[in-house]
Design a protein around this nucleic acid. Sequence first.
DNA 1: GCCGTTTTCGGCCCGACTGTTTTCAGTCG
Length: 545
Amino acid sequence: MPTNAEVAELFRGIADILDVLGERFKPEAYRRAARSIESLTEELAAVAARNELRTIPGVGDAIEEKIREVLATGHLGYYDRLQKEVPPGILELLRVPGLGPKTARRFWTELGVEGPAELADAIRQGKLDGVKGFGPKKVEQVRRALAAVAGAPTARMPIEVAFPIAHRLLEGLRRAGGVEQLELAGSFRRGRETVGDLDVLATSSDPERVFDAFSRLPEVREVRLRGGTKETVLLQNGLQVDLRVVEPTAFGAAWLYFTGSKDHNVHLRSIARDRGLKINEYGIFRGEERIGGGTETEVYAALDLAWIPPELREDRGEIDAAAHGPLPPLVEEGDLRGDLHRHLPPDAGVREVDDLLAAARARKLAYVGVVVATAPPEGPVTRLGAAPLARLDAARSPGLTVLRGIEVGPGGPPPELGGVPSDYVIVRPPEGAAGAPPSRVPGGAVLVAHLGHDDAARAWGSWATAAGAAVEVGPGADRIDATAARAIREAGGRLAIPTGLGAPDDDPVAPLALRFARRAGAGPHDVQNCDAAAPLTRSGSKRRA
DNA sequence: GCCGTTTTCGGCCCGACTGTTTTCAGTCG
């Protein structure tokens, strides 16, 4: 049975071939279906079994039938036939930056070139000289792009890896001066798990100065292109960054546009067109007249839509919802009232305890849970020292409840931890194996952390609901991303969001966990640590410190 | 190939940048 990702990849392959064959609208139709399928929270087979494939955005009669064929047989006759029409190497040419379907097709039909290696040979032999549309600059551009693409496949980067990089770039630009507003856009702002590039948007009275400063940042390896309003650079690590500078009056329209997603933009613009309006990155227009664009809200309002949070802008029904009034509120940083998963360093002393509690008070948290002992499925048993433990228990603060947590595997606390008094349990599933939830519930379990298995998310979500537990969301290999968080919510489970208490500014875990939860559509009621009081603990009473 | 509170047919977002051209095609996002 093919996975959703494999079916999406198949449809992208179809789109590429159709592109080279010169089809006009079909390629985008297949790509749109591919994007939708990728973002599903369950297997296609389950959707097909309920006969609901047509409810997937971009899936109509023809694509539904193709999905059913692939699910049933593992093959698609249509794709097999298409593959015979175009040499495989031509499709590789589409991966070369600056080469598109039109150009690839010309290389193939006019020069007999059938792949990247042959194209490089053709350039060396001067076969492109004098070909219409290929001057010396274009040939050199293609030659360099071919050389670059040979060594570096362009993979999307996990957002938690991009986070500190984006943080540094913005810091650098601010320090250089000349920028007024400065924001990230693109899939980064939408909180996607991976980013293909970074989009940075600025307003400035002196764009040239901003571009100059950007080009000189130490992270920048080379400037790819530069015009009056945008500059594209490549970082040392290969990540591409686009910087746009716009007028302050157009900031909202530009931020909306560059945040995407593409499908969201296309839908908005088609609504505008139906109403005799036009949206571009400079504003929203009726004829020549500009009727808004300073803020995103103005643009949405001109279409009688409520403002839509970036995390939801995927054209998965959010636009229809916004037409009927404000969307249900998503969880915000200020909604977080406590944190039940703080670790202290193994050699923590009294000082670290005091710092953590001071940070909790500064954030006005109502409760904080500190892990005092761990016996995870893998790794050694660790315990907090006697002195910091005493300090923790002795902490006195009218507003702050302090709790002791122990972190254990699905089987519950091992004998080694028998003597450790605790208020609640953090369950940590074993790494690697797509572990099924335990059949019995460890007494007073309130949190599942470091789950990391997308496939198991739905099952753990159901289990957590029954256990009165929450599942921790966040970036990284052993955490839960937005898609899995959505599956947990659909299974009736609640989420927990780390607060980042005491973490440095560029630490990605807390801000991205919040974005993932929002992307999963979670409001404050769906998040355990938005509750005003600490969850019920195993003793049935809260440890008032 | 998809889609529809004008539509089951006839549309399908919009502009920047580059290189090659004397007004535009291709690519990209």
